[in-house]
Structure formats: structure tokens, C-alpha cells
Computed example of a mutant assay.
Amino acid sequence: MAPLVVCVGLTTIDVVQQVVELPRANAKIVAHGLRVDVGGPAANAARVAAALGCQVRLVTALGGSDLADLARNRLDGIEIVDVAPADHQVPVSTVLVTPDGARAVVSRNATGLTQQTLPSSEIVRDADVVLHDGHLVDASTALAALSASPIHLLDGGSWKPGLQMLLPSLDVAVVSADFALPGHSPEQALDDLAGYGIPRLARTHGAQPVVYAVAERPGELPVPDVKAVDTTGAGDVLHGALAAHLAEGLGFVEALRQAIDLASRSVTGRGVLAWHPVRTPSAPSRSTTPTTP
């Protein structure tokens, strides 16, 4: 049986437009390309883990809108546990991508979610890895407290309020160059996270080498030199691939190495699955409503 990865966090609808340059104030520009797709760190990571052959369960906030239906259609083959009320509106992210692959993003993220139903322990009972992006920190903290048997992995794109409650339950944290604990600098992030007892840590920094530490022993992994077309979601690809490889039983450093390679390949095309060959259609996603433990 394929390993099970549970991803907990944000789903968005991404409207991605290719532009020559970012607009200045009060300017209007014409895009030369458009893509509408599902996005969000947890949802993207879930799609990547599924493409790598894992069973995937996504704990997220969708609600009952037409945009939620669009998201469900794009999350084919992934079991969805929806913690949002029916009137919740899936956030829309506006993404502008320039020819060098750089991007600017505007999104409400999960700030519009006023209430959520906490998932039950059944959600993670058979999981091999649980990935948390921090956007649904209440759900993440509840699941981490219910089950210590899976590997709990943090996608630390940025600091989220309440994240300090989740950190002591983590086994792995991979953070961006912008991640910092309140009142601290990003350069202190790995030391700060080690202070919470997290034994396996890494920090990405774009095309620069990935710095990691295992039981406080440091190391570096190179990032392949590629021509970037679109860096949107590259970190999500890395985290989804890392979760999949850890679930398969690879050691942290080798799993991280392979995840870095896949994330680098992903920026040479458009979309988080541009690296993946065309797949035969999988079964439609199915949604469940969680029950409070």
C-alpha cells in the first residue's frame, strides 16, 4: 500500500498572469499569458505528493461556493477534509510572473476563516507524514496533539500567529529565507527552532544552497542551476516532495536532496505539476466533514 501523507493548511484559487514587468502605481498593463489553478501551500504540496505516488489527505478550508467546487475538481484523487463552514469563501490569489520567473502575490490567505471544525484523530491515525503550512494552526495543533506517531513536518514560509503552540510537536521544519520568530531575525531561525526541540531543520534561500541541521549537526545541499520560467509554488513542490520521500522511508538528508532537485525542475515550467508527465485521470476527489475529537 502506498504511504499516506496528510497535508494541513491553505487552499486558494490562483489567477496567474505573465507580465513583462510589475505595474507601477495607477498603471495598466497587458498580460501575455493567463492560468487559473488551485493553489496554496498545503494544496500544492498535496498535489505533488499524490503525483509521486502517495495516498494524500488534505485538511483545508473550502466551504460551499462555486470556487470551492473548482478547487475540488482540481484536487482530483485527493481526499479532502473540509474544516470550513458552508458560507466560507475560498481565497483568491493574484499572482504576477515576470519573464525571469520572479513573482508577486496578493492574497487574503486564511484570514477570512472565522471558524473551523477541528478534525478527529482518525484523520492522522494511519499517516506516515503530516505536513503543516501553519495557515490552519488550530487544526494543526489539534492533530499534532492527537497523534505523535507520524512525522510532523512544518512548511515555514512565514511566521503565523499561534505557531509557537505547534513547534514543540514537530519532527522536521523547513523554512524560507523570510521565516523568523517574532522579534528575531531570519538568520536566527534554525537556532530558534532547535530551541523548541525540533531535531531536523532546513532553511531555503532561492537559488542559494539549502542549509540544514540534523541533531544540531550542520550541512549544506546545493541547488541545481536551472533557467527559471516561473518560481510560483517552488517551495510547495519542495515540501510536498519532502513529505512524500520521508513517507517512503528515506532519511532526511536524502529526502531533502531529492526534494530540492524536483523543486528546481519545477521552476523550468509553469505550474507546480509542470515537471510531471501527463497522467491518466485519477478518481475524483471526495470530501468529508470532520468531527470534533
Results as ranks from 00 to 15, higher is better:
118 L>Q: 07
84 A>I: 11
266 S>Y: 02
217 R>S: 07
155 D>N: 14
114 T>M: 09
144 A>R: 08
169 S>W: 04
250 L>A: 09
114 T>Y: 06
278 V>W: 04
145 A>I: 00
151 I>Q: 14
14 D>M: 02
293 P>W: 02
133 D>T: 05
128 D>P: 00
47 R>Q: 11
146 L>S: 15
131 L>F: 01
17 Q>H: 15
110 A>T: 11
111 T>M: 14
222 P>C: 14
35 R>C: 12
85 P>T: 12
48 V>K: 08
231 T>I: 09
160 K>F: 08
63 G>Y: 07
214 V>I: 14
62 L>Q: 10
153 L>R: 08
181 L>M: 15
129 V>N: 03
29 I>A: 07
37 D>W: 00
266 S>Q: 14
280 T>W: 03
40 G>F: 05
252 F>W: 13
196 Y>I: 05
243 A>P: 06
174 V>W: 05
81 V>C: 03
169 S>K: 09
98 T>L: 05
216 E>L: 15
193 L>C: 07
43 A>E: 01
130 V>I: 07
114 T>I: 13
177 A>K: 06
48 V>E: 01
146 L>E: 12
33 G>K: 12
17 Q>E: 15
193 L>W: 03
264 S>D: 03
292 T>S: 06
7 C>Y: 00
267 V>F: 09
204 T>N: 06
159 W>A: 13
89 Q>F: 00
267 V>K: 04
160 K>L: 11
54 C>S: 09
21 E>K: 12
267 V>Q: 05
174 V>S: 07
153 L>A: 04
1 M>F: 14
123 I>V: 15
225 D>W: 07
111 T>F: 07
98 T>W: 03
232 T>R: 02
238 L>N: 04
125 R>A: 15
188 Q>G: 11
28 K>C: 12
29 I>C: 02
138 D>R: 14
148 A>P: 09
54 C>K: 00
256 L>H: 08
222 P>F: 03
98 T>H: 08
118 L>I: 10
251 G>L: 10
16 V>I: 13
52 L>M: 15
214 V>E: 13
119 P>T: 14
27 A>V: 15
194 A>E: 11
170 L>N: 02
16 V>Y: 01
237 V>M: 08
207 A>E: 09
110 A>I: 08
124 V>D: 02
210 V>T: 07
5 V>E: 12
271 G>W: 01
279 R>H: 13
110 A>R: 05
157 G>F: 03
228 A>H: 02
165 M>W: 03
221 L>Q: 04
49 A>D: 02
13 I>H: 06
184 H>I: 11
203 R>H: 05
137 V>K: 04
266 S>C: 13
225 D>R: 15
